[in-house]
Design a protein around this nucleic acid. Structure first.
Lengths: 210, 210
DNA sequence: CTATCAATAGCACTTTTGGGGGATAACGGA
DNA sequence: TCCGTTATCCCCCAAAAGTGCTATTGATAG
């Protein structure tokens, strides 16, 4: 028997959902609210196994909601349920540990399906959502853009990132500090930055080093 | 009409798949092979719209296969199809741009479904696969490591990462350079680093900023 | 009420960095 | 052979950064 808690500010929709789920033999709706302001307390009292969570609600929305729930009750399954499908929110929810992500145009049958699914450890999402998740996978591993740094410059930059001073770098390579200086000057110019901090940040963001 | 190309080393299974797909009115199997050794050439000649790709094959397996295909023909949809479900391979495929990921225990009906789905831009995956993808999302954002930096210190560090000098930071916040200095001193101590470069590197690696 | 902490600020002093000039030797391709 | 690139080195000099102290204020937790 799935104990279901619903967060959805549109009352009509919330009631429809309740009706739909109550019609199922193995589902029990333990509550429904219009925002997540008291989500911790409510989850503690109602002990749901699955939460249907809208994203856009007045007061505390679903993104804060899923974060809170997952931090305090990681064992409760949270299914996001929204009309909004921008990547920002999607990613925010997934990072917070949402167990699934449905668009509101999902059919009632699929919603039932998704609840069963998430309760048995799956992660239901529409193929469209899945596609976007995969997209970010690809872009996160973007190509190491070539700045035209020479091998030596890369070595120097690497040590700079480690926090070594010019003097230490010079010592490491048994070259003069002046040479290190020259390399750094060239590095900064090639990277279009004005100081070490910026170069370090840019290098790491470009994943020149890990 | 979907033009389908199959890579699967088990001949019996490959033939079953061909039969299954040929039975559909809108699917045409343009070829089937037992390894990916000549995948580029084959794709060029056969012009598939969707590729069903097994992972474990003698010679060049599906992981190399999907990489090659996606590099040379990014518009072709690649659906991974495998008994193996270890995370390593899964992630390798997804990073290379696979459009979906099915386990072999998937029913024929679902396979048909998945092909339709991937061809219309979705990313079919079993809820189980989806769950694992979400897992890695969470772990990738690991260590909420709390360094105990105060809000102000975070702001200062953020600007440092942007390459601002102490003077610029002071100006940005309308505070004295001495104060910026103080903050940085505290930041370096809390982070156990000795200079800005190291702090920037550490902050970015800890994903304090993105 | 007090102790702690965050944020602010100052000063003295040293070291490091960055920007501007150079220069030379070695190597490799056009 | 000549030119471009790489790696090396030098000088000057001003600006920036880093270290070690102290100190005041306001908010907050106990």
């Amino acid at each position: 028997m799935h104990q279901i808690l619903i967060y959805e500010d549109n009352e009509r929709l919330r009631n429809s959902l309740e009706l739909l789920l109550k019609g199922m033999p193995n589902m029990n709706v333990v509550g429904g609210f219009g925002n997540c302001d008291k989500v911790i307390e409510q989850v503690k009292n109602l002990s749901p196994t699955v939460i249907l969570m809208d994203i856009d609600m007045p007061g505390e929305g679903g993104i804060i909601g899923v974060e809170k729930v997952k931090r305090h009750f990681p064992e409760v399954f949270v299914l996001m349920f929204t009309v909004f499908d921008d990547d920002e929110r999607l990613m925010a929810c997934l990072r917070s540990g949402a167990n699934g992500y449905l668009l509101k145009k999902t059919s009632p049958l699929q919603i039932i399906d998704a609840i069963e699914n998430v309760a048995s450890g799956g992660a239901p999402m529409t193929p469209e959502i899945a596609r976007r998740v995969l997209e970010t996978f690809k872009v996160e591993r973007k190509i190491p853009s070539d700045l035209g740094l020479t091998p030596r410059e890369m070595q120097v930059l690497e040590l700079l990132i480690k926090g070594h001073t010019y003097k230490m770098i010079a010592h490491d390579f048994s070259i003069s500090v002046e040479t290190v200086r020259s390399h750094l000057k060239n590095i900064y110019e090639k990277m279009h930055v004005n100081n070490g901090n910026e170069a370090v940040a840019k290098a790491l963001r470009m994943r020149l080093f890990e």
